[in-house]
Design a protein around this nucleic acid. Structure first.
Length: 571
RNA sequence: CGGAGUGUAGCGCAGUCUGGUAGCGCACCUGCUUUGGGAGCAGGGGGUCGAAGGUUCGAGUCCUUUCACUCCGACCA
């Protein structure tokens, strides 16, 4: 491809709203163009990179035995009602009506559609297992799109769905996909980590996320510095916190009862008031839990004074769609006193959970549900259904697997794999006949890769202060030939000849044949970030050309006669 | 949805307080010169000043309404 015939609108100054390197460089190098909040056009270069990334994804999936399909983008709302997600999914789901007033949604994910496809065509265990996928534009009406391709409203995604006769086979495919996805991200040259994750709105149990490590990542992940353990903060676990050590004569012993604690509301104040480590205090976090059909309940979560609530865990523990903050007024109306909430004598309508790490504890202090009073000598009740893991793992906590220290890092979620089970097949009545002629719901897995987000993730991890540095399998071109001065016949002809030779050998070559100055073309090369460039310039007089590696920007003079074999050697 | 901010040429911005000919840099077009690190000179094109309404002899500027976008938060395969 000739640069002079391409549309590559590189710009010196990026729009001021672009913050992340990936956003800035993809715009400046002419890969994408912004059209509205979270909406982007892919220009020729961007389209090439996107296609190449897509090809890597497709290649590995096909090799792993998956079958590509292409589902209708517009989904009848009826299917979403059947699965119960029409309500649950929330405002990210774009809903609309056609001319006949029938309701539709713009698919943000396609579990329902895929189950529908399979329930119509698969009837026997003999047809299983089956893994269908598509690579298709999705639309999610994000509340707040940002960071360019990182969180757009419209984006390209690979979504795969597997169907199995039993749990064991589904788990086999789950493991198969963990390996396959890892291969994909390795081929794309990404530094990533597979972590334990929360299943979110998709539902199901056991899910793993593929996180590209980058400071600009939106997810906090907990990793062990000693072993392979990694988890999204939403799903991370730790070894229960040890109680502080005391001398024998200092051992905690309190009588039971209420204690006057005027105006002592926060954990810190309480800790100072009783001269006691927050480890022995119970913190109550009040939230409003939202359910289907706009039902809501007040939910209180009890955790140790020195812990923080992990909202996703809390939300899951009460089976809510969402947790939102609650005002003091609302608490008061419900008969609760902010700062003095405890789990004894709670109003009927209030639901509550206690963090599992408090199980069996005694000699604690918590609110008495009465202004200016706390209960002391509190013991945790032993009702199993009240307990749940509620706390956010903190830096320095201890790994459950190896005893090492846990710490935080940031990641960009580029893939997510779920063990779904029968979450969708049951409500949608998708069944097959097993070996005994009995009707069974499909056991499912679901898998996704954010393809357009991958472009952003690659640049987040591979850039410098000059621009993009594409990895081999994501670059829009393999090689760029820069003709230093196009008006010099010798240079131009050498460039053309090299371009033809390399192209005929199957390389994807960009020939910068523009009538521009050398420096201008170099800046564009550095900004665009094709991994290799060959400069044809003044050293041509000595029958030499220059080979530049974009990553290191190191240059090497090569005999013109040897350049083709040199290139072949590198690839 | 809460808080903050911005809309003036393709991009980056000034002009708005104090109403009076629509500006600058980059980009673009033409010509000449230049050609190893975003060239120089000369000439040129391009804007319903986000939109609607109002005040005024006169509005980019003042008033009202509205829309869009961005940032922080909440939210988020």
């Amino acid at each position: 491809m000739r640069f002079s015939k391409m549309l590559i609108p590189t710009i010196k100054e990026a729009p001021s709203d672009a913050m992340l390197p990936s956003h800035i460089y993809l715009l400046r190098a002419g890969f994408i163009q912004s059209v509205g909040s979270g909406l982007y056009n892919f220009l020729p270069l961007g389209k090439k990179s996107l296609d190449r990334v897509r090809q890597v994804v497709k290649d590995e999936l096909d090799r792993a035995g998956c079958l590509e399909v292409d589902l209708a983008f517009v989904t009848p709302a009826e299917l979403w009602r059947e699965s119960g997600r029409f309500e649950k999914y929330g405002k990210e789901l774009l809903r609309f009506k056609d001319r006949k007033d029938n309701e539709f949604v713009l698919g943000p994910t396609h579990e329902e559609m895929m189950v529908n496809l399979v329930r119509q065509s698969v009837k026997s265990y003999k047809q299983l297992p089956l893994h269908l996928y598509q690579i298709k534009t999705k639309f999610r009406d994000e509340i707040r799109p940002r960071f360019g391709l990182m969180r757009g409203r419209e984006f390209l995604m690979e979504d795969g769905y597997s169907f199995h006769k039993d749990e064991a086979d589904m788990k086999r495919e789950f493991a198969n996909m963990e390996v396959t996805y890892s291969k994909i991200f390795e081929r794309l040259g990404l530094d990533f980590r597979v972590v334990e994750a929360d299943s979110g709105a998709i539902g199901g149990s056991g899910s793993k996320e593929f996180m590209v490590l980058a400071d600009s990542g939106e997810d906090t992940i907990v990793v062990c510095d000693n072993c392979e353990y990694g988890a999204n903060i939403e799903a991370a676990v730790r070894k229960p916190k040890e109680a502080p050590q005391y001398n024998k004569d200092e051992e905690l012993e309190m009588s039971e009862g209420e204690f006057h604690t005027p105006n002592v509301k926060t954990i810190q104040e309480l800790s100072e008031f009783f001269h006691i480590n927050p480890h022995h205090l119970i913190k109550a976090v009040a939230k409003k839990a939202l359910y289907d059909e706009s039902k809501e309940k007040i939910a209180i979560f009890f955790i140790r004074g020195n812990d923080e609530l992990e909202e996703t865990k809390a939300c899951n523990s009460v089976g809510a769609n969402e947790l939102i903050d609650i005002s003091e007024d609302e608490l008061e109306k419900a008969g609760l006193v902010a700062g003095f909430i405890g789990f004894e004598n709670l109003p009927e309508a209030v639901i509550y959970r206690i963090d599992s790490e408090l199980k069996g504890e005694t000699n604690l202090i918590m609110g008495a549900n009465r202004k200016d009073y706390h209960c002391i000598g509190v013991s945790i009740p032993s009702k199993e259904e009240l307990f749940a893991d509620l706390v956010a793992v903190q830096e320095g906590d201890i790994c459950t697997k190896c005893g090492g220290k846990l710490h935080y890092t940031k990641g960009i979620e580029v893939g997510h794999i779920f063990q779904l089970g029968t979450r969708y097949s049951k409500p949608l009545g998708a069944t097959f006949l097993d070996e005994n002629g009995k009707s069974q719901p499909f056991v499912m897995g679901t898998y996704g890769i954010g393809v357009s987000r991958l472009l952003a993730a690659i640049i987040e991890q591979h850039h410098d202060d000059k621009g993009c540095i594409w990895t081999k399998e994501s670059s829009p071109f393999d090689i760029e030939i820069i003709v230093s001065n196009i008006s010099k016949d010798a240079e131009r002809e050498a460039g053309e000849e090299l371009y033809n030779t390399l192209s005929s050998k199957g390389f994807n070559v960009l020939l910068d044949d523009r009538k521009e100055r050398f420096g201008f073309k170099m800046k564009d090369f550095e900004l665009i970030g094709i991994p290799l460039a060959i400069v044809i310039g003044k050293k041509l007089a000595d029958k030499k050309v220059e080979l530049i590696k974009r990553e290191s920007l190191e240059r090497e003079d090569i005999d013109l006669d040897n350049i083709v074999s040199k290139i072949e050697e590198i690839f």
